[in-house]
């Protein structure tokens, strides 16, 4: 069997005494899009945040089981969080560009990770903006504030900001929930373009979106992984009754 890019085994997650994830085992394959779907509060975001250890910031959070990326347990004692988060980038629900210029937003990552000299930064900025299709729109206003951009442009900028540090995995936490349908379609198109270079995990409560973009889908309910499989199969011939109820809209 081929090892996945990310191997999640027997993952339990607790917020204090509340168990948010129960014994989740999941394999995420390299350079494919894996969608995590399920109703609100089912633990989708929690699961996603286990993959770059963003849950570490929460008080009283506790984790059991293992998450391996490229065979390395990211909860191991020798893990460098900074390196991990450089490798595993995250896009948030609401676009969160920093309140600085467009250029500086993208230069931020390379600067903090000491990836490039000052002279090399313009190149990186251009390359990153091109990768998300923003270069032509923004090349003349790089010094303008990132907060002046539209929601969709902001979300693209946030993706470009990650690409600038050359990650391998992109985690997307409902990246389109604050966007209108047209903008959503554009971001989805971008995700399909990025797939050939990055492993993408997307959390979404929009089932059509999962069906449109993902190769693999995991249905999560009340912290349990109900079903996981190829998106085509999961949406056409689900094996479990609960999954069928959810995707046909009878529930959720």
């Amino acid at each position: 069997m081929v090892e996945g890019k990310i191997e999640i085994r027997g993952l339990n997650f607790y917020y204090g005494t509340f168990q948010a994830l129960q014994d989740v085992t999941l394999r995420i394959r390299e350079r494919e899009i894996t969608a995590i779907i399920g109703p609100s509060g089912c633990g989708k975001s929690t699961l996603l945040r286990c993959l770059n250890r963003m849950n570490d910031l929460i008080k009283g959070a506790r984790i059991e089981g293992s998450v391996k990326i490229d065979g390395e347990d990211i909860y191991g004692s020798s893990v460098d969080l900074i390196r991990l988060r450089k490798k595993v980038g995250m896009v948030f629900q609401r676009p969160n560009p920093f309140p600085i210029s467009i250029f500086d937003n993208i230069a931020y990552g390379p600067a903090i990770h000491h990836l490039a000299s000052k002279q090399a930064l313009p190149d990186i900025v251009e390359r990153s903006l091109r990768a998300v299709g923003l270069w032509d729109e923004l090349k003349d206003r790089l010094s303008g504030s990132a907060l002046m951009l539209s929601g969709e442009q902001q979300q693209r900028l946030c993706i470009a900001r990650l690409i600038a540090v050359e990650p391998e995995i992109l985690l997307m936490d409902e990246p389109c929930s604050a966007l209108d349908p047209v903008a959503t379609a554009k971001i989805e198109k971008l995700m399909l373009e990025l797939k050939c270079r990055y492993t993408i995990v997307i959390v979404t409560h929009n089932m059509q979106q999962a069906a449109r973009v993902s190769d693999w889908a995991a249905y999560l309910y009340l912290g349990k992984l109900i079903e996981f499989g190829e998106t085509k199969m999961l949406f056409t011939t689900p094996k479990k009754r609960e999954t069928e109820d959810y995707i046909t809209g009878r529930f959720g």
Binding site: N52, M54, L57, L81, I82, R83, L84, R85, K86, G89, M90, F92, R94, N96, P97, F98, P99, I100, Y108, G109, A111, I112, H113, C158, R161, L162, V165
Partner: peptide, 27 residues
């Protein structure tokens, strides 16, 4: 300063001090 700025910065692998100096203070 919105929590999302902190999260965004930390998620990029910035240290706490980098986040404070480069993101939070300017904001």
């Amino acid at each position: 300063v919105p929590k999302t700025y902190r999260e965004g910065s930390i998620a990029m692998g910035a240290t706490k001090w980098q986040t404070i100096r480069r993101i939070i203070l300017p904001s």
